[in-house]
């Protein structure tokens, strides 16, 4: 008698647990980003359009992306600080392209062209012209979005060899 009850209890419990796990999986998947959200994740920009030391803000996956064409002095400074690897080189020009969200908690830093630096008003973090962090609390420089160089055009959201190199040597985190 007891064995039969145990068996029925375990059978009921087992099937209920199975159904429960299935339901949890369905719930998790329902909260996932939709395919339409995922597929809208590409933006193409033309680097010819930008002027030196004038910050442009593009939109990629709903996030602001900073594009800053570097002046000669900026390039010299970046070379000295070993941050040239943070820049994207197209022909002979260097561009800083980065997600414009503070790596601390995601506010948008403001650019001051006179100082050639960024300041985040939320918690006082600062970045230089290559978007490398110069003052805490941000733990790292602004993240560089996945990109693929196509002539003078840049496809944001696609992964090209230059971006893979940045990922591999730890210049940026995956975003």
């Amino acid at each position: 008698m007891s064995n039969r009850r145990d068996f029925m209890g375990m059978a009921l419990g087992g099937f209920t647990a199975l159904g429960g796990i299935g339901a949890l999986y369905a719930m998790k998947r329902t909260w996932d980003p939709l395919p339409s959200v995922k597929s809208a994740g590409f933006t193409t920009i033309d680097l010819k359009d930008y002027k030196e030391n004038v910050l442009a803000t593009e939109k990629w996956r709903g996030k602001p992306v900073f594009v800053l064409k570097q002046t000669k002095e900026m390039i010299e400074k970046a070379k000295k600080n070993g941050e040239l690897k943070r820049l994207i080189k197209v022909n002979d020009d260097y561009y800083m392209v980065a997600v414009g969200l503070c790596t601390h908690l995601g506010c948008i830093p403001g650019y001051n062209p006179a100082d050639e630096s960024f300041l985040c008003a939320c918690h006082g973090g600062m970045y230089d012209s290559t978007a490398m962090v110069t003052k805490a609390p941000p733990p790292r420089g602004l993240d560089i979005p996945p990109f693929k160089i196509d002539g003078t055009k840049l496809v944001l959201g696609e992964t090209g060899p230059e971006y893979e190199k940045m990922l591999a040597d730890g210049t940026t985190m995956k975003v």
Binding site: P33, V37, K63, C107
Partner: peptide
Amino acid sequence: MVITNLFSGGSLHADGLVEWIRGDYVPA
């Protein structure tokens, strides 16, 4: 934006979790 970013757990970089909570790359 700021509160959901807390769930990335700082250096843990659980960005996938943040995107899952939002259902998008940003609040939308």
